[in-house]
Design a protein around this nucleic acid. Structure first.
Lengths: 152, 152
DNA sequence: TACAGTCCGTGGACGCGATCGACCTGAACA
DNA sequence: TGTTCAGGTCGATCGCGTCCACGGACTGTA
């Protein structure tokens, strides 16, 4: 992980469809060299995936909600997690410090679907209660920040 | 926006670096046809960007926090928003229904940096108070869900 | 200092993909 | 029925992805 790798990462975070030739020009290496570096970044897990970012409304997912989950004290966190993983509407899942164990970001098409989702979550074994906030609008999301210093 | 467009979108959400030729094979059209469809999806704003998803720890961003913002009653929401936009650590920004006006997702390298960020947020004109939750771990994030029915 | 091994790069070659233009087809409509 | 247009295919060209052989810098060892 040197400065050139960070440079490549930053370029691919901005545009994942850049060609190797273009990357090579921008970082000052040959295309095969960049190709090999990217391959290593992928197989070492630094680059997890390449994703197209889609305007959610256009694919019928106009409602964004953030849902905090409070577990029952006797709950098995792994089981709860597996139950959440099986729910496709849950786009992101964070395990939090504090009273609420999980914060979920979910996207659905309608308020009705959100209601069904919340009911389903509350019925999930291990879930004591939920608290839902609705995002009226997403100002921005997953904006890449300039890469800082990698860990020592 | 027909079924083929949705198919293309789903494929690109799974892997944004698929070649047009490969997309064409999978959706059953010729490569130029797919090229044109993707171009239209991009220029109409359905496809917003193509991003490489990076393991945050490897670029020195090991601390994820979710920060709720309560605005002062007299605050100008647009000004607050612009102030937030200028802070690179804020990856996502949602305008919420409820007492808390904003929910921010931020990523920093250390707890010290998080402290500095929270101080900065609290000093921002228009911000009355903040409430921060720290993500101990990210179970998953931005998982694409199968595309549903587009809006009528 | 000389030598060998390793890492990481370059340059060349070749086949495939991106992309352009010409042409085709079916639907909508006067 | 004829016209127009959207949206597709096909073919050609050019550049890119990718494989391979080769070379230079660095390092540890005699």
């Amino acid at each position: 992980m040197d400065a050139i790798d960070l440079n490549i990462i930053e370029l691919l975070r901005g545009n994942a469809r850049l060609s190797y030739a273009e990357l090579a020009r921008q970082v000052g290496l040959s295309a095969p060299a960049v190709h090999e570096r990217v391959g290593k970044l992928e197989s070492s897990g630094v680059i997890r995936a390449y994703r197209a970012e889609i305007e959610p409304e256009s694919i019928g997912l106009g409602v964004t909600a953030l849902i905090e989950i409070i577990e029952e004290s006797a709950a098995d966190t792994d089981d709860v997690l597996e139950a959440f993983r099986a729910i496709p509407e849950i786009e992101s899942c964070y395990f939090m410090a504090g009273v609420e164990s999980f914060l979920l970001k979910a996207r659905v098409g309608t308020i009705g679907e959100l209601e069904a989702l919340i009911v389903r979550l509350n019925r999930t074994p291990g879930v004591a209660s939920t608290r839902t906030g609705i995002a009226l609008s997403t100002k921005w999301e997953n904006r890449p920040q300039p890469v800082g210093t990698p860990p020592a």
